[in-house]
Computed example of a mutant assay.
Amino acid sequence: MPPRQSSDTSRGKAAVSDVYSSMRASILEGEIAPGTRINIDAVSRSLGVSQTPVREVLQRLEGDNLVVYNPGRGYSTTPLLDLAELRSLFEFRLLVEPWAARSAAVDRLANPARTLEKELAAFRSTMHGNADLRQDLVAHDTRFHDTILAASGNAVVRHAFAQTHCHLHTFRLYPADVDGAITVAEHSAIREAIQACEPERAEVAMAEHIRNSFGRFAQAFEGNPALAPLEDAGPPRRHMVE
């Protein structure tokens, strides 16, 4: 009996993992539109699983801020960011990430340049063999920025940043860099500054990357009179966190 129970548990975990991957991809790629109410029974039937793993997955997706739960209505996919929310998100990034890049550009073992180069090399390989890079690009971007935040050594800042789920939200909003080439070029500039242990250069490269990213994603709101360059947010605060 114990081995059978273990086998059942493994199958259950596999089912949850498969359902999570499937639903997450459907939301990120727009197959399930923003603001769509999710019918648990319909999802379980379409994926050939019971409702139990679907419910568990919805709780995980709620933690990712990809779905929301409303009493009496159940789960629905979160709406896309509007322009004001996008600006607020990138202004937060402009405060935190240039500081993190500056902190990472140090001549000690915590310098993450080698890890960043491995990440860039892996993504470059993906660029040559995959026609649709959207999922790979968001995964690369998440790992690249998290590596720098981790190297800063401040767990509170890293956790606060993770809670914004910025990569998932911006990925849903607009495919701003379809082939990944612009992102790789800007990431490479940041990595080179960190490897050279030049804090000011790393800070400037990260700030430029974030401002440029905002401009690319803000194209979804082209023609909106409220759209203005992110430079209005002011320069990055170098010593926000000591």
Rank of each mutant, 00 (worst) to 15 (best):
F144M: 01
T147S: 13
R124C: 02
L81N: 04
E119Q: 11
S103Q: 14
A104D: 13
L94A: 14
C166T: 10
L120H: 03
M127W: 00
R114F: 13
V156M: 10
E91S: 12
T142R: 13
A160H: 04
L95S: 08
L149Y: 05
V106C: 11
D146L: 10
P112Y: 05
L133C: 00
P98F: 02
A121Q: 14
A100W: 00
A150G: 07
I148G: 07
G129P: 04
D132E: 14
E117K: 10
F144W: 05
A121G: 01
N130I: 13
C166W: 08
P79Q: 14
A151D: 08
F92Q: 04
A151G: 08
A139E: 12
S103G: 00
E117M: 00
S152Q: 02
R87D: 01
R158F: 01
A131C: 01
P79M: 09
L137A: 08
P79D: 09
L86E: 07
V138E: 13
H159L: 11
R134P: 04
L83T: 11
A105P: 13
A113W: 14
C166I: 13
T115Y: 07
H159C: 04
P98T: 03
H128T: 11
L80A: 03
A101L: 06
E85V: 09
V138L: 12
F161E: 12
A84R: 14
R134W: 10
L137P: 04
R93L: 10
N111G: 12
A122L: 01
P98K: 01
A160R: 08
A110K: 06
A101I: 09
T164S: 08
F123Y: 15
R93V: 09
G153N: 04
A113M: 02
T142H: 14
A139F: 00
L116M: 15
E85T: 04
N111L: 15
P98S: 06
A139G: 02
L81T: 05
D107I: 07
E97K: 06
A131K: 15
L81A: 11
L86M: 06
A110C: 13
R102L: 07
A160F: 12
I148W: 12
F123M: 01
T126R: 12
L89S: 06
R108I: 01
D107N: 15
N154M: 11
H140E: 08
A155N: 06
F92T: 09
Q135L: 15
A100C: 09
N154I: 14
V96T: 04
A100T: 09
D146C: 05
D146F: 06
F144T: 01
L81Q: 08
R114D: 10
S152T: 02
A104Q: 13
A139N: 06
L89V: 02
H128K: 12
